[in-house]
Amino acid sequence: MIVFVRFNSSHGFPVEVDSDTSIFQLKEVVAKRQGVPADQLRVIFAGKELRNDWTVQNCDLDQQSIVHIVQRPWRKGQEMNATGGDDPRNAAGGCEREPQSLTRVDLSSSVLPGDSVGLAVILHTDSRKDSPPAGSPAGRSIYNSFYVYCKGPCQRVQPGKLRVQCSTCRQATLTLTQGPSCWDDVLIPNRMSGECQSPHCPGTSAEFFFKCGAHPTSDKETSVALHLIATNSRNITCITCTDVRSPVLVFQCNSRHVICLDCFHLYCVTRLNDRQFVHDPQLGYSLPCVAGCPNSLIKELHHFRILGEEQYNRYQQYGAEECVLQMGGVLCPRPGCGAGLLPEPDQRKVTCEGGNGLGCGFAFCRECKEAYHEGECSAVFEASGTTTQAYRVDERAAEQARWEAASKETIKKTTKPCPRCHVPVEKNGGCMHMKCPQPQCRLEWCWNCGCEWNRVCMGDHWFDV
């Protein structure tokens, strides 16, 4: 396979590697080409510095992935760790964990309700045991953590790749202090920090972006993250068709209702045909949960890209028209025109101005929308079919299609509260000796007794199943 190397943020060049090629071997190839010592090179990928003893497969490097290699003399205490030698983080029983690669970060837990604080980093599902597709590297999971809308060759929703760059020099040479644990960490600028490894760059702020994971991409090709779309790892039924499908869209209502993408497309087109989208002054033209839940309008309007190009163009047109109407304007009634106009409040005669090729020149009556006339309008008909009709959803289907309910059931079956801080902690095999993952707590306690870890627990039921 081919990976592209950008040395000291210059133009990239291809390097041929195998899945079992080590990072140090990659350094040696680059060092020979650039005429520099291999031990002064640092390989940066997806916000993480890659260790010498890791392989291309370990690092989730795919065909035509772009890695950054910078030349920086080692500072005291760094060289041993980078070589894969006596790194205290690798000691058996050590409590410190390697910062998780962005290629394996899962933010789907952050669609849980606000009262489930902490689960994004504490609760991990076991539903990723799908067998890898044919042709994928051994052991590589097909679980997708992110979804994007690819405006490039795909023109559809695709699995996405999370990447990070330095907000100062805009190069992907920043190593994160810690990985993101929720969508806010990724979507809110300057929320996460790190250290830029580019020479002479003092940058410390992280800037995240997404790429389409279905095809090789260049540095400049980015895609918009659709953070309401998630892999259906909890096997929730769709609120409309009641099938279990994946991926799904999880509405931001209190129940976190789930809808499959085909039904979401149908829901949007139906509402669009009836012009029953909601115009929100802050958000724009949007839709609420299909069950009509309060405070559930979709905030990231790129989710409506699921409509496809033709329907999305209609959505944008109707949204612009609705904006004009909300501002007190009118639409030209001549067939084939429909231009938005903003006449004076007491102006009865409205002319669709033909300047700049935008208007048709038609003069019409503001009251009856017919060709302009003197005197009273002959008839004014009330528009028919403008009443909002509820999208029919079966109550039982709505009850079963809740992301929140599956989460709470998982928590109930696989977790116990920490005796000190009461945060839910998952036990997935292993011994009875637990350690609270909350940095402010870190209590060592017994899963069996529910009390602080002691010699009695150690001698009596340390390794009970």
Rank of each mutant, 00 (worst) to 15 (best):
N8P: 01
S10W: 09
S19G: 13
Q25I: 02
L26I: 08
E28C: 07
V29F: 14
V30E: 01
G35V: 03
P37Q: 10
V43S: 00
A46K: 13
G47S: 02
K48H: 06
L50I: 02
D62H: 15
S65P: 10
Q78V: 14
N81I: 14
R97M: 13
Q100Y: 09
L102A: 12
A120V: 04
I122V: 14
K129P: 12
D130I: 09
D130Y: 08
P132I: 10
P132E: 14
G139I: 13
R140W: 11
S145V: 06
K151A: 14
P153G: 08
Q158E: 07
K161S: 09
L162T: 01
C166Y: 00
T175R: 13
R191I: 07
S193A: 12
G194H: 04
Q197V: 10
Q197C: 09
T204S: 10
C212K: 00
G213Y: 06
D219P: 09
V224N: 09
A225M: 03
L226T: 03
H227M: 09
I229R: 01
C238A: 00
C241S: 01
L249D: 00
N254I: 09
N254S: 11
S255D: 15
I259D: 01
H265C: 06
V269M: 04
T270N: 04
V278R: 07
L283K: 07
L283E: 08
S286V: 02
V290S: 05
G292H: 06
L301S: 08
F304A: 02
L307Y: 01
Q317C: 12
E321C: 07
V324I: 13
V324A: 10
M327D: 11
L331H: 04
C332N: 03
P333D: 03
G336P: 05
G340L: 04
Q347A: 11
V350C: 07
E353T: 08
G355R: 11
G359Q: 09
C368N: 03
E374Q: 08
G375F: 06
F381A: 07
S384W: 06
E395M: 11
A406F: 11
S407N: 14
K416N: 06
C421N: 00
P424A: 15
K427A: 10
C431F: 04
M432E: 03
Q438T: 04
W445N: 01
C446S: 01
W447A: 07
C449T: 01
E452S: 15
N454W: 01
G459L: 15
H461R: 01
